[in-house]
Write a protein that binds this DNA or RNA. Sequence first.
DNA 1: AAATGAAACAACCGCCCTGTC
DNA 2: GGACAGGGCGGTTGTTTCATT
Length: 402
Amino acid sequence: MGRSPCCDKVGLKKGPWTPEEDQKLLDYIKEHGHGSWRALPSKAGLQRCGKSCRLRWINYLRPDIKRGKFSLQEEQTVIQLHALLGNRWSAIATHLPKRTDNEIKNYWNTHLKKRLAKMGIDPVTHKPKNDALLTGDGQSKSVANLSHIAQWESARLEAEARLVRESRLRSNAHSSLQQLANPPCFAASSSSTSTSAPLLSKSEPPAMASRSLDALKAWNNGWSRSTEGNGGILGRGTGGDLESPTSTLTFSENVPPIMARGGGGENSVAMIEFVGSSSSCDQGGIMREREWKEEGIGNPSQLPEYKEGFENSMSFTSHEMTLSIEATWTAESLRTSDNGIAEEGFTNLLLNNTDERSQSDGGGDESENGSGSGTDYYEDNKNYWNSILNLVNSSPSDSSMF
DNA sequence: AAATGAAACAACCGCCCTGTC
DNA sequence: GGACAGGGCGGTTGTTTCATT
């Protein structure tokens, strides 16, 4: 299907915006709203493409955006969310108030990515570049199992938290409709649509789960030693059992990505299949961000009831109760161990100790530069992912998160 | 002071999804 | 169901600024 360009490019100005153009755009939107972006330039007296106007407004002229240097907290958040979400800048941006996806993306590409790379940490996988050492020994099989387990848990946690949240949101926003409709909820399979599909199609880049779990794999490899016999993650998943009382998740590797865009070369596609016996359900729909906007809610994560709802949402139905337990278990399991884990995350090490570390490593073995080895490595990864999980747990999040 | 390269930032491009007709 | 418009998104490129030689 061919499509016409978004605008007639002949005679339209490109390049940096002038203050006059900005003012025209501001004045027009202030008075009329943006309406149709395509029609806006002529109405506003701008020799610009509507798309260009839209971008200018969204990224720079909107009154509710913050410009300037990123704070330490913002940097941490970006790094942590990128580890979890990959290059989903818009999703990351929802957790950084007043920052645009474009700005975050640029900041990542020009600052954070280089900083990680400089420390010997792969900015794509968020793991040390010499990670191969960890899978080259005789533990590769158990590591692989752990990887599956952790991968499953991570994806499931995300999916289930999202479902619960959406259910809660819907119950708030569409309570009257919910009384009328009661469709099957977790019957989603590989052909599912509203619930699971977005998670693992557009919202979930194929590379994401494996990316995050590569680090978890290494982490668990070390961490599991301290939790064996304590009913930790190993106790649950030993033997490669990926079944869950509430859901199953199938990872199909080497399958072409669902989405061509941004998939990169990692072709792991996850198909989530809920087979649980839930007594209530998601009500078969999603309260999407667009709906929030249409209803004038704005960013739902800012609503007190939303935050409260998210926190409380883990205790409604039998299914959701299960989610509560397991989500808590997962997070808590990852957060605690016999040794205890410092709250200070690996990211803090990146952000605060870059210089010290690089200096101290500077004269040492190149292979250990930036990543450490042995227990240091495990500790770093534990803290790193703890930090991420804490962030996710504490964040009210919104619809773009998962 | 000029030239050069690196870094940072702003904006564009192309693809894709969704809604509407 | 197909065509199209509108808009979102991520990748990439162009331009400017800064640092170094």
